[in-house]
Design a protein around this nucleic acid. Structure first.
Lengths: 235, 235
DNA sequence: CGAGGCTGGTATCGTTGATACATGGGTGTG
DNA sequence: CACACCCATGTATCAACGATACCAGCCTCG
């Protein structure tokens, strides 16, 4: 009962804070404002969330949840690159639709600190990129490709948020997305138009290396990984 | 005397606030902190800057000034695309070196609002892109290209700021930069590997259209501009 | 049935952004 | 030369903020 009550209170506080954030931005989320909106006492916030930052983290996760669920439960498309495209579009779409949440998540990076929601999103992106790598169509390392995609997508989203809707370039997101994908993805395993074949295969091999658990010892795999990284990074 | 005094006081306040910002982040810039550091009274801040946001804007401009000066006074390279590269690197370099200033400038976009410093930076970028367009090497419209470059550069910078220095991908910036440039720039006026030739020429023509002031009437130029946009956007 | 700890509410602390009010020095006029 | 006016500066203070100490009630367990 106590636990249930607590989690219900927590839910009510987060929902109230999320409402204030969406409506009035970061500065509207104050201890007084939240306690009034959620019909709780100011100290309750600190008991449940530790401090203001804890509440904000929870709010971001809350607002991001629906988006994450959609991303996670989406069935894989035939082409893993299309999955990546859909992931990009979903990301940008969420940011534009929920600018205050987005600015809170990605607008104030603190070196080495990442909100739980951002971590989950990053993991999903890594997963999508890994599927492309396993198909042998990634021209650079998984981590690097994911960071390039995330950086560009994040920048596009913030730019769109900062532009009045009527002034937005409707193709900015798509163009930038394709620019990054073109640099990161090759036509096919054999088509070596972009990316050296050795790099492509090294990346692909690394992505599926975990399947070789019973073939190589941990030490061997570690060394092999280093070599593959060196090959793929050489391009 | 009074004016001089005032501007000197203003300078001292901004410098003190900039020091606090660089050292302790946004939250370190409080009216008390600034007045103590600058040896002025709290109300002086409001008399000079209107409110806290006014002070922060001034601080951002102040911190951005050295960077802007460098960018403006740099001699043009032989290849306008290289100018663009240098501009990108300077932008990212500034952000990584001054993360708190950068987050204040680009991390909290408000639709339709842009700080003076950001406006100046955007103008410089437009200028650089226009030079590329005049050389007939731009595959998309000037505004779109500038927005793509700015978005990606902004995202990369924020990503780097959020990553501990030892974990940063040293090539993230360069790779992303080249990915965007490859999508936006063609090899040469005739090399149509990327971008339809018609689009390339339409963009180049639009960039130099102001030179045709005495050849076309304002109305004619307006209509022609619309057509050129349609052609270049069609790709 | 009583003691102990946990939950929740009240009151309050120090600090923040912002402002009203008084004070003092410089200017212009008689 | 003296007086009055005016503007810039300094003092004191306000409401709201994040955060916390403290007390009262409840449930649990002995």
């Amino acid at each position: 009962m106590g636990v249930d009550d607590r989690s219900a209170t927590r839910e009510r506080i987060v929902a109230a804070a999320a409402g204030l954030l969406a409506e009035g931005g970061r500065e509207a989320v104050s201890t007084r404002g939240v306690s009034n909106a959620a019909h709780v006492q100011p100290p309750a916030i600190y008991r449940i969330f530790g401090d203001m930052q804890g509440l904000l983290d929870a709010v971001v996760s809350y607002g991001f949840q629906a988006y994450l669920d959609k991303k996670i439960n989406r069935p894989h498309a035939a082409d893993p690159v299309d999955d990546l495209r859909e992931g990009w579009d979903a990301h940008v779409g969420f940011g534009v639709a929920n600018p205050e949440f987005y600015k809170l998540m990605y607008g104030q990076p603190v070196s080495g600190t990442e909100s739980e929601a951002a971590k989950k999103a990053a993991e999903i992106l890594i997963g999508l990129v890994e599927r492309v790598a396993k198909a042998g169509r990634l021209a650079v390392g998984v981590e690097r490709a994911a960071q390039m995609i995330h950086s560009a997508g994040c920048g596009v989203t913030l730019t769109l948020i900062g532009t009045p809707p009527e002034s937005r370039d409707p193709e900015l997101s798509e163009r930038t997305r394709e620019a990054i994908l073109a640099a990161v993805i090759t036509e096919g395993p054999r088509a070596s138009g972009a990316g050296r074949p050795s790099a492509v295969h090294a990346v692909a091999l690394k992505a599926v290396l975990s399947e070789a658990e019973d073939t190589l010892s941990p030490g061997e795999r570690h060394l092999l990984t280093e070599w593959l990284d060196r090959i793929s990074h050489s391009w």
